[in-house]
Structure formats: C-alpha cells, structure tokens
Design a protein around this nucleic acid. Sequence first.
DNA 1: AAAAGTTTATGACCAAAGTCATAATTTAAA
DNA 2: TTTAAATTATGACTTTGGTCATAAACTTTT
Lengths: 198, 198
Amino acid sequence: MIQEHLLYLFGAEKLFFLKGEQIFNEEQQAVSYYQITKGEVKMNNFNDDGKEFIQGIFLKGQSFGEPPLFSEVKYPANAEALTDCEVLRLSKERFLALLKVHPEEHLKITAALAKRLYYKAIMASELSSQEPEHRILRVLDYLKDHVHNLKEPFSFELDLTRQQIADLTGLRVETVIRATKSLEKKGELKIKNRKLYR
Amino acid sequence: MIQEHLLYLFGAEKLFFLKGEQIFNEEQQAVSYYQITKGEVKMNNFNDDGKEFIQGIFLKGQSFGEPPLFSEVKYPANAEALTDCEVLRLSKERFLALLKVHPEEHLKITAALAKRLYYKAIMASELSSQEPEHRILRVLDYLKDHVHNLKEPFSFELDLTRQQIADLTGLRVETVIRATKSLEKKGELKIKNRKLYR
DNA sequence: AAAAGTTTATGACCAAAGTCATAATTTAAA
DNA sequence: TTTAAATTATGACTTTGGTCATAAACTTTT
C-alpha cells in the first residue's frame, strides 16, 4: 500500500513469520503499522465458546491492523500468518509522521480504510440474511472480486477449507458442506475433486 | 466532525429534511459529504425479500456516507432522516479540496473512519454469534457506549421500537420481544411500561 | 508403506428461531 | 373523540441449521 522505500526511509523493519504464527493478538495495544511483502495473513476473533470468526484475509501488498493506530485502543482481532510470510513493520509514531509528511500516502490509507468500511457495510447487511447459501456466496464473491480481483465465472479457485468458509460466515462445517453441494446443483459453484470454484 | 465554518468557507449548503425523508439512496453515485447539525439520520439497506437492515444511526455533529467519496462507487446504503433534521452538504470535489488544505481535518476524518471500521469489525464477530440475546445486548451496548456515550447502568433509554432492534440485529420482531423479556428477567435490561433501558 | 491426522461427507435427531394467526395496548390521525 | 394505524404480546406450528456420531477420502508424517 505505502511505497516500500518510504517505509524503510522512516525506519520500518522486515519481519518473518511461519505459517500459523501469531503476528499480534486482540489483547494488545496497537503500536505498529504492518504491510505484507510476501504471503497471506488472516485476522480473526474467537467468541466465548471458542468458535473462530475470520474478519478478513490479506495478501501481499496489503496493510492490516491500521484502524486502532488512529486512536488509543486495542486491536479489534488477532493477526495470524496463513502462509509463511514477510512483513514490514513501522511504529505508530513513525507511521503517523510519515502520513504527515506525505499527504498522498495519507490519502491512500484513508481510501483503503474507506474501501474496507464500504465492504464491511455491505457484508453486514448480506450476512444478516440468515440463509447459509446466500451468506456463502456473498463472502466468496467478496473474496473473488475484492481480494483477488477476478471477474470471470469460475475463475476463482478457493484455497479455503470448508471449515474456513464456516469461520468466515459464522456457520458450521456441516452446513457449509451441505450448502456448497446444493449451490453446485444450482450451478452457482463448481466442485472439481473437492475443490471449489466460483 | 469538520468545523462548520470551514465547511461554509468551502461552499457547503444547509439542507432540511423531514422525518422519514430520504437523503440519498444506495443506487446513487456518491457525490457529497454530509454532516448533521440537527436531528438524527439512519442508514439502511433492504434485502431481496424486503427486510430492512440498519447499518447505523448518526447524531448531531456526525458525518455519514463518506467512504464512497474516496473511490468511484455508489453509496453502501440509503440515508433517511429519523427525525426532522438539518444537514450540511459539501460536494465531493470541494470536500477533497478541503482535506488537502487542512490536513488536521483529514486526520479527523481518517480517525472517524478508523473508529467506525473498528466497531464494524467487533460487531461482525459478535453478530456472527447466533444467540439472539447476545446479538441484542451487543448492539444496544454499541449504541449506548459509542453513539450516546453513556456509561451508567440503565442510563440508556432506548427510543427504538422492537422492530428497529430487529432490523439492527437481523432478527424478527417476535424474537426481539421474547428475547428482551428474557433479558429483563436476567437483569440485563429494564423495561418500564414498554420502554427499554440498558 | 503404514499410521496418524485432516478434511469432506452423510444420516438422525433436536432445539431454537422463524412463520402465521390473532389480540391487546398504545399512539397518531381524521 | 372516534377511527385508524402501529406497536407489543402470545400461542401453535414449521422449518432449518446445529449437534452428534460415524465413516470415507485425502494428506502428511513417521
């Protein structure tokens, strides 16, 4: 998102995380800006009875966990490496200093937040619909369009397990399995040896 | 949010809406910044079968509908006057010009977006929990803490109908009626001649 | 190659929220 | 002040997604 050379100029450090490692957790005060240079990261919460909810999945080039940098609050969720990955980290103070000196980067950040808010809003209303099939399709379309930027039908090969889809939609694995099969029958999805295409 | 005199300086106009009037709808391209000087506004969507979902409620001093001003998209929801109200409107171009000239106002906007994103994220995970009572409490607490800034127990007198609570939580009226009664029994809510207190 | 672990799959049952019908109560309008 | 409309309330019934148990098909590890 922010140009890498600028991040380095302001003192960013490069960090490495192995698949499954936690980058930060929701208990912590937010003190750094993070931007991915390699790999994938997910942000998630666990509710009272241990069920996971995936807030979002972030790819190379994207930043995550910025919102709390603009106020004195904790992270809204945990961040965990979905694959081995490489991340640039910049302290909150330096991040804000960078934005001050580079208004065009500030505008990019604002635009990124706005975009995310936009889709969170759309998702909120879509997910309030109870029908599992509807919820699944909307989440998949969101990932397809706005995370991977794919347009062609069935061009999106999901590398998500049914469990992960469940965690993204707030449903149960069994429900996701049944719903995806039903969606395949309706021609909304394709399943080729267990892999999902949308 | 943005200082009023600045808005006027950049050519904002004052508009009046009657209770129930629509300020913009989700079909429209976003072309203006809006800030409330009197009254309340809600943003909502209607899903395929006509069920309403309330995205948020905004009070005097707050702005709404800004996210799409940072990209070329439509509004994520409709905006409707909840009470008679007075609103300042500034065109997108002038709004962006204002931010350019006044970085401190830009930062305020970014912070506001960040804050909203933060709570949308928390809400998303809370609302993925299926239990109606939990969903209702979380929405009410959100309104109490972050819209009305109230802290004392039962200091928040809801001026929402059961139907509106249903629309905020994605539940049905009957479910809300039953759940609120159950919550009262548990001491989580108070009901004084049909009015809810939290 | 075998064993252990994941992920996908399927059926039976249950609980809980939705649906529908109807009515009481409150509020707004004529 | 009546009438009409909206809101709250309650019961009966239905649907649907969750739960639990079990198994098959893949993957990964040993």
